[in-house]
Amino acid sequence: MPINYYIVLSVALFSIGIIGVLTRRNAIIIFMCVELMLNAANLLLVAFSKMHNLALGLNFPTLASDAQIFVFFIMVVAAAEVSVGLAIIVMIYRNIHSVDVNFLNRLKN
């Protein structure tokens, strides 16, 4: 498969994530769309790793593992972010009983 298919796929997922962030008001959904963006990046990384592996693989057999490990770390970070993020969302829900980000506009101008 040419790499551009994967690029388009990832960027498409990424863009859908962005559209989600832009159009939804539910903080949890927005957060999920961010996760989608992260996954798009992950997919792209993996695809590129295979591409490099094909191009340079003979000389550097472990080259592709770099990107895969990177993806692994992204998942680690994502997990940490999720725990913090959900904690914050829950805290807000406890205070205002809503997860609508449009309600959050005390801070402006």
């Binding site: 962030v21 832009l22 159009t23 008001r25 980000v101 449009n102 959050l104 402006k108």
Partner: peptide, 17 residues
């Protein structure tokens, strides 16, 4: 200009994009 700072996350992200 400070009206740009509307307080809405959606607007912020939109402007960022």
């Amino acid at each position: 200009i400070r009206l740009l700072q509307s307080g809405q996350v959606g607007t912020y992200v939109l402007l960022m994009v």
